[in-house]
Design a protein around this nucleic acid. Sequence first.
DNA 1: ATAATGACATACA
DNA 2: ATGTATGCCATTA
Length: 113
Amino acid sequence: MQEPNFYQRVYDVVRRIPAGRVTSYGAIAAYLEKANAARAVGYAMRASGTVFPPIPAHRVLNRQGILTARDQFAQQNLMQMMLESEGVQVVNHQVVDFEKVFWDPVIELSDNQ
DNA sequence: ATAATGACATACA
DNA sequence: ATGTATGCCATTA
């Protein structure tokens, strides 16, 4: 399946997420200049497992820092464990200090930085 | 080509 | 504050 530029873009951003950091679908969408395309980003993530190399989708959460994708992962604990293993504290399926570990591509990947 | 779906986000009651 | 409803985008059927 030829990945559309959009998917490629999303994957590229997700792969740039540093370990121990997390971002939101809206942030990625905003980086793609489609602030309202968060759903489309989520759709891309859903297909992340269908492409190679695998995408660290566990670092992408919703705006609340909640692991909404736990359903997609075999076990909810798995995603939480991976995040905690990277230094992200997760409690009750929610990232602790989400603002502190939040990684915004619009800012981090900004020219001015 | 049209309709329905979805790992979201925001607004309103 | 919680629950319900609508919008927006791209993909899939």
